[in-house]
Simulated assay, not measured.
Amino acid sequence: MPTPTSEGQGDLCLTNVTKRFGDFTAVDDLSLTIPQGSFFALLGASGCGKTTTLRMVAGLERPTAGTISIGEEDITEAKPYARPVNTVFQNYALFPHMTVLDNVAFGLKRRKVADATKTAKEGLELVELGHLAGRKPAQLSGGQQQRVALARALVNHPAVLLLDEPLGALDLKLRRQMQLELKKIQEEVGLTFVHVTHDQEEAMTMADTIAVMNAGVIEQLGHPTELYERPASTFVANFLGQSNLLAGEISDRVGGDLVVQVGGHKLALPGDRSTRQDGKVWLGVRPEKLRIGLAGGADGAGRNHLDGVVLDASFTGVSTQYLVRLAWGQAITVVAQNDGSALLRDGDQVQVSWVPQHGFALDAAQDAFAGAQRVGDDDTPVPALGGAR
């Protein structure tokens, strides 16, 4: 495959980008810099603006306001074919009457690129499909077709490769395999990948940086670990995995820790893990950070403790998910790894505990249900088990 030229290389920058469709604002004053060579994910639910953002970068939608550039090149008004950008779609869009090799070489031949066939073969080798060059798309599995579409995009050496829910049509096992494959390929070719997805696990597995989008704006941007461990809003806390949110109030400070009153209990939280230092908060803790045992049992010092009763126990193999009702009636979720211990039963009196450093606190003025999963025909918001009630 040919070496990329310097033309069109550099960071992808969106500056004050807005997109309106009539009275509806799909993307609202978005400013974002995606470093060259990074694997970047736009994560959010349907309608959050992530796909519209991708389409504006690709040139398939024109911004209502703002600018888009790659390096020193302003591409805001450029035609799609004139941009150093390629897109891999969920449906792959392969030509069914052509061989795999001809599909990959198609764009190169149209542009009269020298050694188009040789370059296409190198692209297929990159995605480990060189041995299938003579087959038609219908003779390939979904994962193989996805890799052909990826090779077709990569042989053009775009400055930015856009991935629009590329794994959505694959089954769970294959999707997880392809997540690792995509990350490996991105590291090998060193191009900027911008991946749009609604799948939190997919984004966290592959991306160096994730932007969580909601209602046309970015709720939080950062490394997957940062977003998961230190969510900046209830939306991010609920959307990215599960969170137990407990209504509390900061009542004191001891050294670097805050004292949070929750249901008559004093719970500790490091001050730097709270978005505010006084007043009412949602004290959050992830289900897998909790330890559960029978009430009255020995537990480590320096942990926060709450008593409750088991409402439900669901064994999933690698872990057991417990639904525990606390003394004031709120139900929280606890995920306990399967370490061979005896399972707790419905009705058991238990103690739930966690290390203060595993908690986080958010402004109680935020909606505790923001970002929670939605079920039902009426799209009624329902918190993930353990959400504030």
Rank of each mutant, 00 (worst) to 15 (best):
Q277I: 00
R62P: 00
G10F: 01
Q330T: 00
A370N: 04
S31H: 10
T333R: 15
A342G: 13
T275C: 08
P381V: 10
T15P: 04
G22L: 02
K280N: 12
A41D: 03
A388I: 01
L343F: 07
V189A: 06
S274K: 03
V27D: 08
V254W: 02
V189Q: 11
R389V: 09
P35D: 01
E226T: 15
R303P: 01
V309D: 06
V85A: 06
A313M: 03
L326F: 00
D171E: 12
S31T: 15
I250Q: 02
L267F: 00
G340T: 08
A45C: 09
F106E: 03
V350K: 07
D348V: 03
I332F: 03
H305F: 13
V104N: 05
E122G: 08
T316C: 09
G302D: 10
G190F: 06
L246S: 07
L94E: 07
H198Y: 09
Q357V: 13
V259M: 02
N103I: 00
S353D: 11
N16G: 11
P231D: 00
L150K: 10
L60W: 12
K121Q: 14
I75W: 00
E128K: 15
K289Y: 07
N91L: 06
R291H: 12
D164R: 13
Q186T: 11
L362N: 09
K79M: 13
V382E: 04
V324C: 11
S141E: 09
S38E: 06
R374M: 09
E181H: 14
S31I: 05
D257A: 10
V382L: 10
R20E: 06
Y81P: 02
R374K: 14
V318Q: 14
F360V: 03
I250D: 01
V309W: 04
S314E: 10
L126S: 12
R389P: 04
E122Q: 15
A169L: 06
Y322I: 02
D307V: 03
D29V: 06
D339C: 03
R152F: 06
V113M: 09
K289D: 08
V375E: 10
T53K: 14
L60C: 13
V334H: 08
F21V: 03
N304L: 02
P383A: 06
D379V: 12
V355T: 11
P137T: 10
S243M: 05
Q357R: 14
L174N: 06
V100H: 10
L43S: 11
L167N: 11
D363K: 07
T76E: 04
I70S: 10
L191V: 14
Q177D: 13
L267A: 01
G317P: 05
V85L: 03
G216P: 09
L343D: 09
V254D: 13
G359S: 12
A45P: 08
L180M: 14
A149K: 04
C13T: 14
A327M: 08
L42P: 04
A41Q: 02
N86Q: 11
L180P: 05
V324G: 10
A153D: 06
A342R: 15
Q330R: 08
T117M: 11
R152P: 05
N338D: 15
Q90L: 09
V189D: 08
I292N: 09
T333C: 15
